[in-house]
Design a protein around this nucleic acid. Structure first.
Lengths: 243, 243
DNA sequence: ACCTGAACACCGTTCAAGT
DNA sequence: ACCTGAACACCGTTCAAGT
């Protein structure tokens, strides 16, 4: 009765119409499952049952698509606890860092393709508000929010390497740590005297302690409060960050 | 008298023997001339009149080669002036940032392929020494040096995009700045109240002023000195950083 | 206007074969 | 041991041709 052409179409789920939103969502799914490295134009197109060229109707470039993906993921950062401005600030910045740490390749992208979507703007605004609450003037609050977010992304990018042994990893974190410790302990007292003298202090502390130190140090610098004046929530008051 | 084979070899300059050093040097030259993006294994091999596969005898991977290039370039950072620890610290960190800013793609690489060569170690050690001189304890000095270098690389990566109009550029900086200003001025007072209220403070200041602010803020946080206690060289005492 | 296949101009890395 | 050509398995983006 009907021609066979439409019939075979009805056999499998209808191919959803292409749209910018659909493309971003599919890309987010690939990033969540396999990391940013796998979310290539060709791969995203394949998932949408089309060719890579078709995507260029809706996105300008790979960088633009990645920027949209990051903004969508920022939207999913959990709301901060209803506590002091310090605790909320820590939760927000750490949430951003954790997000970038979770999916290989994302952190790198976040530094280069400066996120500027509405969700990033909202995150920036929240941090700015918390710093204002902490006594910073508007200029310091703005630049401070900038610095905190940049630093979070850079920290995430620095050890952005999935699990140990992951073939997709940039570096093996265990191998890396060993190499660093070796280099510090055997450092030449003539060429690098301070490193040699204070080797223990240099290597001291877990990743989460180092992160706490960095946050606290930055907030001190931004607000101008002395360490001793700055009330900072104790480490065990929050869920531990990935060590 | 002699066979023609050696003769034709003598016609053109003798092909220098392949070595790790030679490979790194040639790669540095390509980076200086055309940016890191052009310094591919294939291109470096071509410059050395061989095939890409031959390089793998001397370098493990592209990442390892890039790491060696960065370390060599760090060696060339000019020595700091013989002034206060603050002035020397600023000169060193700014020198590192400027280096990463100079060659497109280098900053991105510096964040991911964590430099760990001897010249990076020496730079780290110098910063640590300056922070100790500024009154920081060894742990703070070590973590502070880490943070300063990480933020310098991240800052450079953020606006790592050659000249306006460069086809190799990640983004057009002029276009980018316009877009940011537009977004801030038209920001929704409901969604981003602080951004909307303090738009002027957010957009205020030149890139070099922002950089100065970041350095000063970080050093304040690291050493625990209040802004008012921290002697900081006036901006016009040093050569202006790239604006 | 939207979509496509094919092409263009590249990548990093591996490997069998040579010297 | 060192070097090579060729191959493998990919990229982003463009564009003429179709609908």
């Amino acid at each position: 009765l009907s021609s066979p052409q439409p019939r075979s179409r009805r056999d499998r789920p209808a191919k959803p119409p292409l749209s910018r939103n659909e493309i971003v969502n599919v890309t987010v799914e690939i990033v969540e499952r396999e990391g940013l490295g796998k979310a290539t134009m060709r791969r995203v197109a394949q998932e949408l049952d089309t060719g890579a060229a078709s995507l260029y109707v809706y996105v300008r470039s790979t960088a633009e698509l990645q920027s949209a993906v990051i903004d969508e993921l920022i939207r999913r950062i959990p709301a901060p606890p209803d506590e002091s401005w310090q605790a909320r600030l820590r939760a927000q910045v750490t949430g951003y860092r954790d997000l970038l740490l979770r999916y290989p390749g994302l952190a790198r992208s976040a530094i280069v393709v400066r996120p500027a979507g509405s969700n990033f703007m909202r995150l920036f605004d929240q941090l700015m508000g918390l710093l204002l609450e902490g006594g910073a003037d508007p200029k310091s609050a703005s630049r401070g929010a900038d610095m905190l977010l940049l630093n979070a992304a850079a920290t995430a990018a620095e050890h952005s390497m999935a699990e140990a042994g992951d073939p997709d990893a940039d570096v093996d974190p265990v191998e890396e740590q060993r190499a660093i410790e070796m280099a510090v302990w055997t450092s030449d007292p003539a060429g690098t005297p301070h490193l040699a003298k204070h080797a223990e202090a240099v290597l001291e502390g877990s990743p989460s302690e180092r992160w706490e130190w960095m946050l606290r140090s930055q907030v001190t610098g931004i607000t101008g409060h002395l360490f001793t004046d700055l009330t900072w929530p104790t480490a065990d008051a929050v869920r531990p960050v990935s060590d």
